[in-house]
Each structure stands twice: as structure tokens, then as C-alpha cells.
Amino acid sequence: MKFRNFLALIIVAVFAFIIFQAFTIVPAAGEITINKFGQADLSNRTASRYINKNVNSDSKKVIYKESSNLESGSANIVTSVVANYRSFDTLGEITVLFLAAAGIAIVLNLEKSEKSRFAAKEASLILNTGIKIIFPLLLLAGAYIFIHGHLSPGGGFQGGAVIATAFLLKMLADYKFEIKEKSITLVESAAGIVFVGLGLYGLITRGSFLENFLATGTVGELFSGGTIAVIYTAIAFKVGAELTNIVKSLIEA
């Protein structure tokens, strides 16, 4: 026991030594190294292309609520990276969540043991009324977050997480509330099919998987960003359904 902790301390110390060295490097002339905190030089990073929205097109000034028909129409640049420039990663990521949800369902149901649902058996009046008010509000907040994902902070993951939280609270507070497994599965599958379908449609019509095929509109308007809004909606439904599925499996295990 004592020896184990000592060994762990040595391993951690070795890693600390190795990793901290990376930050103390003084590069020789012409060498590149990690940037100092707060001094990331974006001009020679890929990021500058994403910010200026000139990956495929020429550099021009982007002005909020004025520039239109840019290659990626989202005012939130993180969103345009997540749902447009690097949307393939995002597809992979919701797949990871999908696989985890499937894995959790398998693990918890493979060998039947006595199941007890974890929830308030007799909720008090306050809890009951509170959840009745909060539940639709949370759903609405979630929807707002993902619909405005290309304009303000937030998007599919955050909106989906908020929606899942709403269902989590409802399931905890209300013993009788049940979501049919079939409906979660259908939402999950449908959202996934929409995402891949968008990609394949882009492949067929434009020649590249997940390529944007809608007009990108004016930066900062609600209807802008081309497929970003559709993709983020699909992501929100999928993430929401998957997280709800995970939580549901754990509550009912």
C-alpha cells in the first residue's frame, strides 16, 4: 500500500518533469515551440483562415449584419469550426456518444438483476409543482440555445445537454414519468440519419461529404449559415436523446 503510493508519486514526478520541460524551452533561432500563455500567434495558424472565412475564397473584410454569401455564414466562429469546417469530427463525436449509450444499455441489461428505479416515490407538492414549471422552461431554453448556436455562445451540445437535464429532473422527481425506449431510439436514429444524409446529399450534389449546399445568408441573421443550423438541430436532438438515454439507463438500472 505504502509502496504503491510511493511508486505512483515517482511516476507522477517523472511525468511532471517531462511535461513541465516543454514550457521552459527557449527556442533557438528558426525553431518553433509552444507559445507562451496569452501570446498565441494566430496569423500563421489555420485558425486565421477560419476567422477570416477565406479557406476557399479570397480574403475580404467580414462585417457583422452586412457581409453576405460568405463561405461559412456563422457569426460564432467556434460554431463554424464545429459544424462546418470540422464537421466530420463532430459526426465522429456524436457517434462516440451513440456508441456509449448503446454500450451502457447493453452492460446494464445483459444479465438481468433486480432493478429499482431511483426516483422520488412520493414527491412533495413543491417539488411536483416546481418541476411542472421548470420542465417546459428548460426545454425552451435548450431549444433557444441550439437554434441560436451560430449567433451566440452555445449550440447543439449545450442545447442537447440542457434538454437531457430537463428529462433527468423530470425522471427523478416524478416516479410515474416514463419515456418509451422506442421513442428515444427513433429520435436518436432519425437525427443521426439526418446528419449523415446531409453529408451524403452534399457528396452527391457538390462532390464532397458534408459540404454545405444551402445559401449562407448574411452574417448575424437568424437564417444564415447554410447547413450549420440544420446540423446543429440534428446534433441537439441526437445529443439530447443520447444523454437522456444514458441517464435513463442509469436511473433504471
Binding site: T95, F98, L186, E188, S189, G192, V196, G197, L200
Partner: peptide, 17 residues
């Protein structure tokens, strides 16, 4: 060649159906 990844993905998402 994207289809090598895209089609299995599509099929996995549709598998429950």
C-alpha cells in the same frame, strides 16, 4: 472513399430501426 466511413455510420444509426 468517404463512403467507407459514411455507409457504416448510416447503417449503425439505422440499425435499431
Amino acid at each position: 472513399l468517404t463512403l467507407i466511413i459514411a455507409i457504416p455510420l448510416l447503417m449503425s444509426f439505422t440499425m435499431p430501426i
